[in-house]
C-alpha cells in the first residue's frame, strides 16, 4: 500500500472520483496549471482537461455562486477556496443560498457542492492565512462541516463529501498537509460523514479535538500516567453526539481542544450537549484548551495563540485534581 501525505491522499480521492463520475468538476483560483497553491489539484488539468478543471477569475463569491448554479444544473462542483480566510467574500453565497436552497425549494433544488479550503494556523503565514473559522459554518443550518486529521481519513471523507447530496465545507488542516505519511489504500473507500473516531482508548479523561490538534493531543498524553481517551471528531456538523456521550459516561472528565477562538468555539456547543445529556456523569468541570478571543497573531507571536502540549497537559491535570 502506498504511503501518502494528506495532499496526495486528497489528490488521489479527486482523481478517482472524477474518473468515475463525469459530472464532477473542480474549480477555483490557480487550481489548473498551477495545481493549486498547495498542489492539491496537481495533475488534474492534464488528466481531465480545461472543461472539468477550471481556473476561475479571482472572485470567491463568484466561485461559490456559480458552483451553486453548476450544482443545480446537474454537475458536482468541488470548489477550492485558496485559504480559509478568503472564504468570507463567498460567505453570503454559502449561507444565504447553498445552505438554504433545499429548504427554500422544498427539496426541488439541492446543492451537492463541496467547498475545499486549506484551514488553520501553524505555518507562519501572512494575515488571513491562519484562521480557524469553522464555527461560522457549523452555526449555519444546511451545511456539513468536515475536518480530517490524517491522510487516510482525508481520502475517505472527501469521497463521502463529494457523494453527499448537500453542501459540505471540507477544511484541510494545512499545518499537517505534508507532516504525516500514512498507508492509504489505492482502492476507493469512504468514511461516513457524522462519525467521530476514537484514536486512543482510555478510561480517566475524554479529550475531544479535531484537525492538526489530534496529533498535538496524542503527543501531549504520551507520557502521562492518566489513561486518556482521545476523540477525533472528523465531522463538526453534524456532530457524533452519541460517541461523545458514551465516552463521557465512562470517564466523567472532559477536555476539549481546538485552535479556534474560545467564545462560541465548538467546545461551547459540546459542553452544552454534555450538560444536557450526561451532566450526572461529570466528575469535574469541563476544561477548554482553545485559541484566544483575538485575531490570530502574525508569525513572530503566533505560537502564543495555539493550544500546545503543555496547555493540554495542564487541563488534564486540572480535571484530574478537581
Amino acid at each position: 500500500m502506498p504511503k501518502l501525505n494528506m495532499v496526495e491522499a486528497i489528490n488521489l480521492a479527486l482523481k478517482q472520483e472524477m474518473s468515475k463520475d463525469k459530472s464532477i468538476i473542480v474549480l477555483g483560483e490557480d487550481v489548473g496549471i498551477d495545481g493549486g497553491v498547495f498542489r492539491v489539484t496537481e495533475g488534474l488539468l492534464k488528466k481531465f482537461s480545461k472543461s472539468r478543471v477550471i481556473d476561475t477569475p479571482l472572485s470567491e463569491s463568484g466561485i461559490v455562486g456559480v458552483s451553486i448554479g453548476l450544482a443545480i444544473n446537474g454537475l458536482k462542483p468541488v470548489a477550492e477556496i485558496q485559504f480559509e480566510g478568503f472564504m468570507l467574500p463567498a460567505f453570503d453565497q454559502i449561507v444565504t443560498h447553498a445552505a438554504r436552497l433545499r429548504n427554500r425549494s422544498r427539496g426541488r433544488f439541492t446543492v451537492p457542492l463541496v467547498i475545499r479550503s486549506p484551514y488553520g494556523g501553524g505555518i507562519k503565514a501572512l494575515e488571513h492565512h491562519s484562521e480557524a473559522p469553522e464555527t461560522y459554518y457549523v452555526h449555519s443550518p444546511g451545511l456539513k462541516v468536515v475536518i480530517p486529521s490524517t491522510p487516510y481519513d482525508a481520502k475517505g471523507l472527501l469521497i463521502s463529501a463529494i457523494r453527499d447530496p448537500d453542501p459540505v465545507i471540507f477544511f484541510e488542516p494545512k499545518k499537517i498537509y505534508r507532516a504525516i505519511k500514512q498507508e492509504v489504500p489505492e482502492k476507493e473507500y469512504s468514511i461516513e460523514i457524522g462519525k467521530a473516531n476514537i484514536v486512543q482508548e482510555g478510561t480517566d479523561v475524554t479529550l475531544i479535538t479535531y484537525g492538526s490538534l489530534v496529533r498535538t493531543s496524542l503527543r501531549a498524553v504520551e507520557n502521562l500516567k492518566e489513561s486518556v481517551e482521545i476523540i477525533d471528531l472528523r465531522t463538526l456538523s453534524p456532530l457524533d453526539v452519541d460517541l461523545i456521550i458514551n465516552s463521557v459516561s465512562k470517564t466523567g472528565k472532559v477536555v476539549i481542544v481546538h485552535e479556534a477562538p474560545k467564545t462560541l468555539g465548538l467546545s461551547a456547543e459540546i459542553s452544552a450537549l454534555i450538560n444536557e445529556k450526561a451532566l450526572l456523569s461529570l466528575q469535574a468541570p469541563i476544561e477548554r484548551v482553545t485559541g484566544f478571543d483575538i485575531t490570530i497573531p502574525l508569525p513572530k507571536t503566533e505560537h502564543y495563540y495555539f493550544p500546545d502540549e503543555k496547555r493540554i497537559q495542564m487541563a488534564i491535570k486540572k480535571v484530574m485534581e478537581f
Binding site: 483560483e29 489548473g32 481556473d55 477569475p57
Partner: peptide, 11 residues
C-alpha cells in the same frame, strides 16, 4: 498575472 492566472483569463 494573479498568481498563475494570466490577465486574459481574468477579464
Amino acid at each position: 498575472f494573479a498568481i498563475s492566472v494570466p490577465r486574459e483569463n481574468q477579464t
